[in-house]
Amino acid sequence: MSEQLLNEIREAKPVASPELRERVALIAVEAPAREPLLARFQPRRLLLVAPVAVVLVLLAAGAIANLPRGGTGDEEQAAVTAESSADQSVRSAPGSTTVPSESSTRESLSPAPILGAPSGAIAPSPGRLQRFQAEMRLRVADVEELSAATKSAMRIAQSLRGYVVSVQYDAPAEGVGGAQIVLRVPTARVQTALTQLSALGTILGQRIGIEDLQQPADDLTAQIETTQREIARLRARLESTTLADEERAVLQARLADARRQLTDLRTALSGTRAEARHATIQVGLTTERIEPAPVQDGRLDGLKEILAWEGTALLYVLVIAGPFVLLGVLIWLGLRFRRRQAETRLLEQN
């Protein structure tokens, strides 16, 4: 195409007539008519806003659902612990050796303890006889550290006026080393012991159980008093001079039985009190590379859980609605293609 021809087209550019200019000028000064509602609706804007709105709604729903209801987090935690204790008491009672009657037990399973205060949530109640048992699993770096930690654990028990019940130490030249240490420390100092022991390595897990021994001790005391009264009564009857020889022999036998029973009861009470004086701590040390359980932040975890559920629900919705959306897009593309074809045909005809 020659440049001359193109210039001719450019130079012959149509110019709007004065009448048209007047018409357009009048249009420009008129107040624009308000568009109908449907004309003002812009799907493109909705597409931009909708995802943001959906995300905000989901976050808000998660936050609202995660708000504490009628109590603090501590209260909720206490409720959970109480529920746990009911189950644990059923399991613990048959295994009890010193307490024949029913007992109440509190037990905490804490896969992710709070560092520095591993048993802060559960502590023995002062003034009551309780059996306190704790298990800790700690990871140490290597065999050298295993040895040092084992010694330290024993020293901790002794420094708190406790003692070492047993130690099993296994440190092979190759492979995973480990140690199992059973310590007894005064119950009043068990928190200190746990805090110090938890510093010996990385806490992998922790289990704390508290069994109430006060009621069994009270029962034993009552039985001792009853037996003592029985002995006193038998002794008083034996002091009588009017007893027949046969009757005296029977009373003496009953007195001997009562004395034996009193001895047994006193022994049991002493054992129960001794059991309550010291807490048992089992410490498991290992060099195995086991990742500690993630620290749980209750409120954030709740939010994460809710968001995960929302994400799952959203995925379901997408799976269900996906084909329809795809079909809609295909229809839209088809209609657009058809419209453009029609426009092209229209322009070719004119």
């Binding site: 550019k13 709007a16 000028a25 420009a28 000064v29 107040a31 624009p32």
Partner: peptide, 29 residues
Amino acid sequence: MTLPARRTPALSASFAATAEAHLDDVYGY
């Protein structure tokens, strides 16, 4: 020819100027 003063200030002002600037182009097209 210039466009007359408009009744709706900023909106009409900018539109009138645009209309005048591109009237020939639109018409030619």
